[in-house]
């Protein structure tokens, strides 16, 4: 089967790739572009470890096709830090010990960033429901929720 040529933007960089018609965006990111920060925990959209934004919308990249990225902007965990400085959420996750094994962390960070872009002052409940599509098995979520809430407060104050 012929591969599809796709022109897109990944973390601000114009990017082209070839993919199979059935290849997921997650597989393209990981296997073709070697951006392995997005993780596959389930491949069914249940765990959120592969969270990215596609034209500004938070999605599970395992549920999108690579070909769907044509002409769109993709943001992944690899684009979150600004040069050599962390995004405030990354910094807060470190300070709050909001990760243990770290496999879910990229997905949580991408999802939390997407939340704060829409809602700069979320309640604890809003954070919990927004992040309900991201599974973490290590932390019990406590420190993740605290990190996001405190980050939101800091960013509002800044």
């Amino acid at each position: 089967m012929a591969k599809i040529h796709v022109s897109t933007t990944v973390n601000g960089e114009p990017t082209e790739f070839l993919c199979e018609p059935q290849q997921t965006l997650l597989d393209v990111l990981r296997d073709e572009l070697r951006l392995t920060g997005s993780k596959e925990g389930c491949a069914t959209g249940d765990c959120g470890a592969c969270s990215v934004t596609l034209y500004g919308r938070l999605i599970c990249s395992c549920l999108a096709l690579g070909a769907e990225a044509e002409g769109h902007e993709i943001e992944t965990i690899e684009g979150m830090a600004d040069g050599d400085s962390f995004h405030p959420l990354q910094q807060k996750f470190l300070e709050h010990a909001a990760l243990q094994c770290g496999i879910c962390t990229p997905g949580f960070l991408v999802a939390a960033k997407s939340l704060l872009e829409r809602n700069s002052d979320p309640s604890e409940t809003e954070v919990r429901y927004w992040l309900a599509g991201n599974l973490c098995r290590c932390t019990g979520y406590d420190k993740i929720i605290r990190a996001v809430l405190e980050c939101a407060a800091d960013m509002r104050g800044a």
Partner: peptide, 19 residues
């Protein structure tokens, strides 16, 4: 203190089994 492997874990740089 902040964990020594923390930066790699929040940037997607950390290499897991499938990476």
């Amino acid at each position: 203190p902040i964990r020594p492997d923390g930066a790699d874990k929040v940037t997607g740089r950390a290499k897991f089994g499938a990476d």
